[in-house]
Write a protein that binds this DNA or RNA. Structure first.
Length: 564
RNA sequence: GCGCCAGUAGCUCAGCUGGAUAGAGCACCGGAUUUCUAAUCCGGUGGUCGGGGGUUCAAGUCCUCCCUGGCGCGCCA
């Protein structure tokens, strides 16, 4: 805890008789920075003391006044006692931190020794990556970076949907209407898949044929396996191009197929524990006694395994292999039931770590039709974003610096807009996709953050002096400067809260606040042409803000550019 | 029908474990650039926090009922 807050707790504890822990729980931040740095609500004391809260606040203010060191003032404001930090000391403690200008300032090591495994993105092989697949990728990769910044060892897992009856359908389609070279063409494969479904409507017997292909695949039939391998390869090559463009990386591509030989053991174990029963020929686990109406299916009547079986095998494998402290499944909320079942079954199978698994769910993205009326493919969205960014840049060309690589900037701005529009909302909310919202450059957007960063870069480049890490920051007297310092000091808290709740939007909102504070103070806190010591103090403040912005933006998947 | 989730300004969203006059962005209106990026800033219009009841000194936040919307509900993933 920072020493300023600590002093507030101590002083208040002394005069109220309450434990510092108790005060810590109620001590809040005033809604506006003019109202001070800490606020102590006096309502609860009112009962015990039988006095009105404002009177208690008044009395506390008087008692506390003589005992402040790092705090400079205690002021009663209605029922609150508000405390103000000594701004000079505060600025020094924040801006003169040894690593204030270093990479990773504000990161922490609190997660050291702990492993967080994150299952995210996990697209289905042989299907194009459309905008609906994007959320898991964006949220999952961001959580990965959030936890990593807090010192956790992260394991990013792409649990590819590379096994299942959809392959039977695909192969069935290929056999009827496709040819050899289609195996290397994802568009062709997708068309075959679509065609299969159309034909199946007319001719339901195709479903049996498809099921049979998948069964052969599960039995290791050489032809079925060979076809599957080629399809998988083609899809994976395509996914990797996309991940590259999004700067998303995985530690493991252990898809569903990886667990083929590990599933019998899971079913056997469930049977040994007496959890299973046979219902209409299928092996199921009844979960009704545990408050879940729908049973978990481990084996179909034809003996084939299911999603649940593979997820059970995968969870066990992950625990054994990565020894995770937490396992996060970044998967849409539509699959909530599946994960409730999964976690309950793990518990019934006496896996002590079942409680370490969480479904990090997110809302549905709706209305993702392109202008042509089809689903929007991710490339289409990324290209459109880049094009709009480029148009924006050329329309405002006189206001911007010369860029070495216009295309790269346009691409970065486009991706920032897309990532941020997703990350700035709470995960749980559904939303209707709209081009305008997904690709917007003004206001609360990714490019707004980038702009704040680039503006500071401009100051550093042009102000004529060098950043001095030891600048006399006691000269930073303006409220707007103090506000910035205060925000900087809260970065780690934002990271921590985002991690605790698996909610990247908390970091996004924080960065927006910081960027807004920067933009608002920009005119007031001039550097260039000011008296040297003052200029130097402001420059250091901006440099540290830039450092925090850059770190936070990278976590959100946004490139902090020096010029844009 | 049952279950889970959501409902805050015209639109998109914030609102920490209940606490100060419910805040941003977009849109709209009016201003700001000889000076470090106007992808910006400053000001204005705009709110029965879905509805009723309850708990509390205090409810957008907790409980309950209802309304609306989304998703899910055994051999798909």
């Amino acid at each position: 805890m920072n020493p300023f807050r600590q002093e507030a707790l101590n002083v208040l504890s002394r005069h109220t008789g309450l434990d510092p822990e108790k005060i810590d729980a109620v001590l809040e931040r005033p809604p506006k920075s003019e109202l001070g740095d800490f606020a102590f609500p006096c309502f609860q004391l009112a009962k015990e003391l039988k006095k009105a809260p404002p009177q208690i606040a008044e009395e506390l203010a008087e008692k506390v006044a003589g005992e402040l060191e790092l705090l400079t003032e205690a002021r009663a404001l209605g029922p609150y006692l508000n405390l103000f930090v000594n701004r000079e000391e505060f600025a020094r403690s924040v801006l003169h931190a040894p690593n204030a200008l270093a990479d990773g300032f504000g990161n922490s090591s609190e997660g050291e020794g702990k492993v967080i495994a994150i299952d995210f993105s996990s697209p289905n092989i042989a299907k194009p990556f459309h905008v609906g697949h994007l959320r898991s990728t964006i949220i999952g990769s961001t959580l990965y970076r959030i936890f990593a910044s807090l010192g956790y060892e992260c394991v990013g897992i792409n649990h590819l949907g590379d096994w299942g009856t959809q392959f039977g359908k695909m192969v069935c389609g290929l056999k009827h209407w496709g040819e050899e070279k289609d195996l290397e063409d994802l568009d062709a494969l997708n068309a075959l898949y679509v065609r299969y479904h159309e034909e199946e409507e007319k001719n339901p017997e195709l479903a049996d044929e498809a099921r049979d292909w998948f069964r052969r695949q599960e039995e290791g039939d050489p032809e079925a396996i060979d076809l599957w391998k080629k399809i998988r390869e083609t899809s994976l090559d395509y996914f990797k191009v996309i991940y590259e463009r999004l700067s998303v990386r995985f530690d493991h591509y252990t898809g569903e197929s990886f667990f083929n030989d590990k599933m019998d053991a899971v079913v056997d174990r469930a049977e040994e524990l007496g959890l299973t029963s046979v219902s209409d020929g299928a092996v199921v686990i009844d979960l009704e006694p545990h408050g879940i109406d729908t049973p978990a299916l481990l084996r179909k009547a034809d003996g084939a395994t299911l999603y649940m079986t593979r997820d059970l095998a995968a969870a066990g494998y992950r625990q054994k292999t990565y020894k995770f402290d937490q396992l996060l499944y970044v998967v849409g909320t539509a699959q909530s039931l599946h994960f409730r079942q999964l976690f309950k079954v793990l518990e019934l199978m006496e896996e002590s770590w079942a409680e370490d698994c969480s479904h990090v769910n997110f809302g549905l993205v709706q209305g993702m039709s392109s202008r042509k009326g089809n689903v929007i493919y991710l490339e289409e969205l990324l290209d459109e974003a880049r094009n709009r960014a480029r148009d924006y840049m050329s329309a405002n060309v006189d206001k911007r610096p010369e860029l070495e690589d216009e295309e790269a900037v346009a691409e970065a701005v486009g991706i920032a807009a897309i990532f941020f529009s997703d990350l700035s909302k709470q995960r749980i909310k559904d939303y209707n996709f709209s081009w305008e919202r997904a690709i917007s450059f003004e206001g609360d957007t990714g490019p707004y953050l980038m702009n704040a960063h680039a503006r500071i870069a401009g100051i550093i480049r042009k102000c004529g002096i060098e950043v001095d890490p030891e600048a006399d920051v006691s000269l930073l007297q303006e409220p707007s400067a103090h506000n910035l310092v205060s925000l900087v000091s809260r970065y780690t808290e934002a990271l921590r809260e985002a991690a605790r709740t698996y909610e990247p939007s908390i970091l996004a909102a924080y960065l927006l606040d910081l960027a807004r504070a920067l933009h608002s103070s920009y005119k007031e806190l001039r550097v260039k042409g000011e008296e040297e010591k003052l200029a130097s103090a402001r420059l250091l403040l901006f440099a540290v803000v830039k450092n925090i912005l850059a770190g936070g933006m990278k976590i959100l998947g946004i490139r902090p550019l020096e010029k844009m």
